[in-house]
Amino acid sequence: MRIQYSPNIRIVEMTCTGNIDHRVILNAFEEGADGVYVAGCLEGDCHFQKGNFRAKKRVNAVKKLLDEIGLGGDRLEMYNLSAAQGPRFAEIANEMTAKIKALGPSPLNSPAGGCCGCSKEGATN
């Protein structure tokens, strides 16, 4: 199956979303990502039982932190899908890209914030 999805997504592979760490997400923003989404397995389908539920809690904690520090929690999302859902993967990639485009580039990338103003999203799986 060859499905097109937004080419601006950079995929960061992780062994399980349960391994996601606040630092990985914050680092993606510091490195210039305009948005980040965590793609975990379907709820109830985690190979390690609760990895994706734990990821969800951490994502929510980082969203809150992003709100507090002014970057905006809506630049971060968590999605759940299975490895067999290729079309859904592309749909999410496009959906997130559209959402971040609407929000505009990360203010961290604006000249005042110091980067090149490029538009790219980091995705983690």
Binding site: H22, R23, L26, N27, L65, I69, L71, G113, G114
Partner: peptide
Amino acid sequence: DKETEILASALRIMRKLEGNP
């Protein structure tokens, strides 16, 4: 270690947004 790095990252982001890195 972890909380220290998270706080450092958050403070850097906050200050960069304020235009005062």
